[in-house]
Nucleic acid binder design. Sequence first.
DNA 1: GTCTATAGTACGATAGAC
DNA 2: GTCTATCGTACTATAGAC
Lengths: 184, 184
Amino acid sequence: MDTRERLIESTRELLWERGYVGTSPKAIQQRSGAGQGSMYHHFSGKPDLALAAIDRSAAELRQRAEAAFTGPGSAVERVAAYLRRERDALKGCPVGRLTQDPDVMADPGLRRPVEETFTWLTGRIAELLEEGRAAGELDPALDPRVTATALVATLQGGYVLARAAGDAQVFATAVEGALSMLTR
Amino acid sequence: MDTRERLIESTRELLWERGYVGTSPKAIQQRSGAGQGSMYHHFSGKPDLALAAIDRSAAELRQRAEAAFTGPGSAVERVAAYLRRERDALKGCPVGRLTQDPDVMADPGLRRPVEETFTWLTGRIAELLEEGRAAGELDPALDPRVTATALVATLQGGYVLARAAGDAQVFATAVEGALSMLTR
DNA sequence: GTCTATAGTACGATAGAC
DNA sequence: GTCTATCGTACTATAGAC
């Protein structure tokens, strides 16, 4: 892994752990093993480097979700498989946590990948729920888009509750609660 | 409002807007109109002041929730009333947002009120769901505690999605999606 | 491409006058 | 109780040698 690559990966980790405000160029340099000059050679500054890191985390989230959505099983089973997928619940969502960072949300360039990620994810799950409804797997009373929004919210809120409790199991409980309501 | 009170209220606002890491003593002093010496006379430092602010925000959340829980209507209607209560969705939850702050979660004193708030809230909603189940308002297949966890997660995640979209309506959509699944 | 040196500002807190 | 002065450190970035 070359220097530029190590800078991006170190920034991804630090944004995940400490957020944008809590991540200093110095910390990035120390974690990546790059010097000051090296970092400012490859990137114009902290926002530029953060953009590269956020773009990559957003792309990774989409790829991992799409892998579950195109896996085996019925449409609703694939949604459930995505919700139940193994996660490091106590670390939180690398994309969702950025919504709490005022400096990220204030910068249109940094904000765009965050916004697009959740628009895409909600839309994708809505498609699958629509498919499930057409196949008779799902109560027709449930609006696909509205229900998809609630399911994505349960995931993001599950991270919050797990961190508050200091217990990753709480995330799993929130997911099972949502799935019980969905498929009963 | 005296100086000590203005310091606490200013800190509450800043923690809500910018989080613990993003809130400096200087910013607190400027917003409250207090000088350096004044702040360090009333509080031993940033953590001490943050604790006073967090304690108050946590107490306020509980009071506002309890007001909905003891309002009119059946048990399930009171849960729905709490979920639908007017909120500034784009500002996020003043308590929930602290779970994303590593320096808050690393300090047992600052973390306790956050943890206790969600333990209490989830338990309180579980009680109401149990009451609703006993009254035949709710599908007996739904476990009260698990369902309560999912509902609280929907609220917290609703804030995340609303901020990501830059649209408070997304929060309302998440809540309606959860209630549709619950009460259909 | 990477290094060290340096700049200007802000952070978080303390000291001591009033 | 509040004020100003000050401290040592960290932040974010630039300059210029190699």
